[in-house]
């Protein structure tokens, strides 16, 4: 009875278990049932909610970094490099 109630409330995941599914949740890799149980745990547990928000904030910061850009002459340099190397007789 208590188990069923717990299951119904979605609190059959404890904090440790919920934490283990964190990345799968963020990467959308949980099946519907687990996803629901994970979200239910988040609704009921403030501490885990805090963690999830911080975890997502870190990912957002990582997304925010400027991508390195090649120098415009790199393509031309690469092409002449390849021409040279590919024309060398192979030993």
């Amino acid at each position: 009875m208590i188990q069923t109630l717990k299951y119904w409330l979605g609190i059959n995941l404890n904090c440790k278990e919920a934490h283990q599914f964190l990345t799968d949740y963020v990467e959308n890799a949980l099946d519907e049932d687990l996803k629901w149980r994970f979200e239910q745990h988040m609704r009921l547990c403030r501490n885990c909610r805090v963690y999830l928000a911080q975890y997502k904030a870190v990912i957002a910061l990582l997304h925010d970094t400027a991508p390195p850009k090649p120098q415009p002459e790199l393509v031309a340099h690469t092409l002449s490099f390849l021409k040279n190397e590919l024309n060398k007789p192979t030993s």
Binding site: K16, H19, N47
Partner: peptide, 13 residues
Amino acid sequence: PRFDEQGHAIAEY
């Protein structure tokens, strides 16, 4: 993060 035997977080974040 650390958890106790019952799976609760050891410290508040």
